[in-house]
Write a protein that binds this DNA or RNA. Structure first.
Length: 860
RNA sequence: GCCCAGGUGGCGGAAUGGUAGACGCUGAGGACUUAAAAUCCUUUGUCUGAAAAGACGUGCGGGUUCGAGUCCCGCCUUGGGCACCA
């Protein structure tokens, strides 16, 4: 059964087939299959209230083309979809309306699902996941408890990024130039108790793993830069005359003799002890002003260095020189040792500082210049930050930078004033948020005395579920210790509350759910009670929730067995599906989602929760951004937003899919054109009339194809197949257009028509399926064997040879395909037009490229 | 400042070192129509020329090559990333 329309009526055709695919479970992926698997993964959307954006169908269409192509190639294909539904907008909506965020989230999901289904994607809807579904976040919480147990989740009240506008803390990765990534609001430093994940422990492996995965270079580079591994030396400078030692980190030990001052970060622990009395006031003031400065100021006003002299001196461990110790906020407490040795002659920042405060600048590296006699030492301008030859460095004079660095490091290690060290820019991941709409962190806080007693009695239910070092914090003069909620009690659901607004001092709205918050727990059984009773101690629930990134760290695993109850993934499903063969999504997640998800996946691998692949995403692709027709980013304020619903209503989903793929290379940024979509729409109408007569019936096709059509079809099969494999969908569509233009003129056989429809099907599945059926083929088109091109049909009978003179085309001739060079030359020499260019000139050389070009090189 | 990726007709874009501008849009002319829409045909890089044809053309300046959009060097410019990380 198909639709009865006579013309290309996509409004009838598209919903018909969408319903048929959905109800017939056409794209259901089987967890047990003899077939080879292919797993295509899209970055799942956040179901915002604004509905689907025109950018969503770009990546989804690309993955859908691959999915449908792979079905046709005989694979068992998994192409799932889900919702990354925790997050700020839903919470803000709840704050504004007083409605529970789940109500709105559900509504948005329904709308997104409907919109995505209206694009006809070959999705297995039985595997839909939703990060806010307790059956899903059950396992998000379970993973958290595993991290906790192994000491990878801890609390700290170090200064964190706080965004007053969002009333929330943010991770380092969520702060860009002193503003929030989401919303672009200013952020400031604030001391708050926070859950932090020890991602730094995975720094090396996160770096190492990048070598073995097929990702865009730019994304790898961003992760490498974010992890920021550097190799150097920690050197100890003794405070004169004989105080404690200041440890500094440097990657340039070769410049050690050029150190003319040390700098401590204002927060450095040695600041207080070394202040001399006469400087005390001045320094206090400086530290306070540095503290007051937001990090925006500290970075934005970076050009203007500030600092203050402590009055103390330290000894250069290599040559014993006394050097002043300064405090300056251009040194960060959070990197290295929070202290540096300043070498103004060979470092831009130190140079600037030394100039401002009139500190001596001592050159110890000379540049190497060329002269007649070979290499010579040259002085040149300071600061000089590249490699060279050591000078003014005593026994190390004359050594090259690299050699000197090695020697001085060895020296330091032998004499005990330093050792090699590796540092990372990567910081631990700030994992808690003061929000309602997130996964509750499944932790209880109990008093230290109860904690200790329970462990001493060796009957605590949590004894083997806690880290080696207690996770605790002090509040109201008591020490509170973190214990996990028993795994059997997961999922821990969000309590009902009237208030969704976080307080402005960093308290989660969950504190308002008093009944939920203050409870009693039996430390032997893990049983929880509302009222105190025997064997129960009072406990407070953790009120922070997880950040939005949590749910997306492992959804690629949940799709494999979305209803599995015994673990986050069914091992059998994992063994079959392994990891996604193709992952597509925006480049904006290069260091957020894509780093966090790799971290969790590595961790899950380490604890044996998964066992097939260490890296989650072996092949990654970023689709480009679709701009407004004015070449600007689409935004409501610019009024250049294209609404996919509107496009579908006017031209249909097939046209939208086709056009988004035809716009240009998948990875490129490209502007939308309202007129451009007319072109692909016209193309589909042409396809329709090529196959269907005025009565809506399949045309009567000739028995045999013209040889020209035969060749055209084979060229098209080859081009479309290769282009799909290489994700060059724009040129694949161009080739199909060439085919239709040709077919329209010459006419095609039924068999050729059928083959072409198969090529078209991944791109414009609705119209292809409809025509396929009308031509009498069996549903569904995506399961028909993908056409194979016949190489012998590709060979042309004659070839055009370009005749060039000095590389310029002057004439062309047609020769038989197998024509020899001699033959080509013989024919060329009969062309008077060509010979005219050669007349009276000396022929220096003849270059012949078989089947393409004959180039005659003339003398002057 | 540093690190990437780009720059090709009026527009989106095509081109294993070998016919630059495929395919599509737009524009112009025509057919069909009472008319419009839709559809079809012709044409559409710039300059000279009636035409035939020629010259010039892939951000700019050099280079390698018989031949360069493609490779090399220098610069301009757009976009992205990083930015006191010692």
């Amino acid at each position: 059964m198909s639709v009865g329309c006579k013309n290309y009526n996509f409004r009838e055709i598209e919903p018909f087939w969408q319903k048929k695919w959905l109800e017939g479970k056409t794209f259901r992926a089987e967890n047990e299959s003899e077939k080879e698997k292919y797993y295509v993964l899209d970055m799942f959307p956040y179901p915002s209230g604004a509905g689907l954006h025109i950018g969503h169908p770009e990546g989804y269409t690309a993955s859908d083309i691959l999915a449908r192509y792979k079905w046709a190639k005989g694979y068992n294909v998994l192409h799932p979809m889900g919702w990354d539904a925790f997050g700020l907008p839903a919470e803000q909506h709840a704050i504004a309306t007083g409605q529970h965020p789940s109500t709105n989230t559900e509504k948005n999901i329904d709308r997104f699902r409907e919109q995505i289904q209206s694009l006809g994607f070959a999705i297995d809807w039985e595997r839909e996941v939703d990060t806010t579904d307790p059956n899903y976040f059950h396992w998000t919480q379970w993973i958290f408890l595993q991290l906790f147990k192994r000491g990878l989740a801890y609390v700290d009240d170090k200064p964190v990024w706080w965004c007053p506008e969002l009333r929330s803390v943010l991770a380092n990765e969520e702060v860009i130039n002193g503003r929030s990534e989401r919303g672009d609001f200013p952020v400031e430093r604030k001391n708050l108790r926070q859950w932090i994940l020890r991602i730094t422990r995975y720094a090396d492996r996160l770096l190492e793993g990048l070598k073995f995965i097929d990702w865009p270079d730019s994304t790898k580079r961003q992760q490498i830069a974010w992890i920021g591994r550097s190799e150097g030396v920690e050197l100890n400078f003794e405070i004169a005359p004989s105080g404690p030692k200041i440890s500094v980190y440097t990657t340039r030990p070769d410049t050690l003799c050029g150190v003319t001052f040390l700098v401590l970060a204002p927060e450095h622990e040695l600041v207080e002890p070394i202040i001399t009395p006469e400087n005390r006031e001045k320094i206090r003031e400086y530290i306070n002003s540095a503290k007051r400065k937001s990090d925006l100021e500290r970075t934005d006003l970076a050009k203007d260095k500030s600092g203050v002299f402590t009055g103390s001196f330290a000894k250069n461990p290599l040559n014993g020189e006394l050097i002043p110790i300064w405090i300056a906020d251009y040194v960060l407490i959070s990197y290295g040792t929070g202290a540096i040795m300043a070498v103004p002659a060979h470092d831009d920042r130190d140079f600037e500082f030394a100039q401002k405060f009139n500190i001596p600048i001592k050159r110890v590296i000379a540049s190497v210049g060329d002269s007649k006699d070979g290499k010579v030492l040259a002085s040149g301008n300071l600061p000089f930050c590249s490699e060279g030859i050591l000078v003014n460095s005593g026994e190390f004079d004359g050594l090259a930078t690299e050699e000197a660095a090695k020697k001085i490091t060895e020296n330091a290690e032998r004499l005990g004033f330093g050792q090699r060290a590796v540092k990372y820019k990567l910081r631990d991941w700030l994992f808690s948020r003061q929000r309602y709409w997130g996964e509750p962190i499944p932790i209880l806080w109990i008093e230290r005395k109860h904690y200790d007693r329970a462990l001493a009695e060796k009957k605590a239910y949590f004894a083997d579920k806690i880290p080696a070092n207690v996770v605790s914090h002090k509040k109201d003069g008591l020490e509170w210790c973190a214990i996990p909620i028993p795994e059997e009690q997961l999922p821990l659901k969000l309590p009902e509350t009237e208030i969704y607004l976080p307080s402005d001092d960093g308290e989660s709205p969950l504190v308002h759910a008093k009944q939920w918050l203050n409870i009693f727990v039996n430390l032997k059984t893990g049983e929880i009670a509302r009222e105190g009773k025997e064997n129960f101690v009072s406990a407070i629930r953790e009120t922070n929730t997880m950040p939005q990134w949590a749910g997306s760290c492992w959804y690629h695993l949940r799709y494999l067995s979305p209803n599995y109850g015994k673990g986050l993934v069914d091992p059998k499903a994992e063994a079959y599906w392994k990891s996604p063969d193709f992952y597509i999504g925006g480049a904006e997640h290069a260091v957020l989602h894509l780093l966090y998800a790799r971290f969790w996946h590595l961790f899950l691998w380490d604890i044996g929760a998964i066992s097939v692949a260490e890296e989650p995403f072996t092949k990654l692709f970023h689709q480009g951004i679709i701009l407004g027709s004015d070449g600007q980013k689409m935004s409501k304020s610019r009024g250049n937003v294209v609404n996919p619903d509107e496009v579908i209503r006017q031209y249909g989903a097939d046209s939208l899919r086709l056009y988004e793929m035809f716009l240009g290379p998948l990875e490129a940024m490209k502007p939308w054109s309202t007129q451009g979509i007319e072109g692909v729409y016209r193309f589909l109408k042409k396809v329709w009339v090529l196959f269907i007569d005025g009565e809506g019936k399949a045309k009567i096709f000739p028995e045999k194809d013209d040889p020209g059509v035969d060749q055209l079809l084979n060229e098209t099969i080859k081009k479309v197949t290769e282009d799909i494999e290489a994700l060059r969908f724009n040129t694949a569509i161009a080739q199909m257009m060439i085919f239709v233009n040709g077919a329209q003129k010459i006419g095609i056989s039924r068999q050729t028509a059928v083959s072409f429809l198969q090529l078209l099907a991944p791109f414009a599945p609705h119209v292809a399926e409809e025509l396929w059926l009308r031509l009498g083929e069996k549903f569904p088109i995506s399961r028909a064997k993908w056409p194979i091109f016949n190489a012998s049909k590709l060979v042309k009978n004659d070839r055009k040879i370009m005749l060039q003179v000095n590389g310029k085309v002057r004439d062309e001739i047609l020769v038989d395909d197998g024509a020899s060079r001699e033959e080509v030359e013989r024919i060329a020499w009969q062309r008077s037009r060509f010979m005219a260019f050669l007349e009276g000139k000396e022929i220096l050389k003849k270059i012949y490229i078989p089947g393409k070009i004959l180039n005659i090189v003339l003398g002057r």
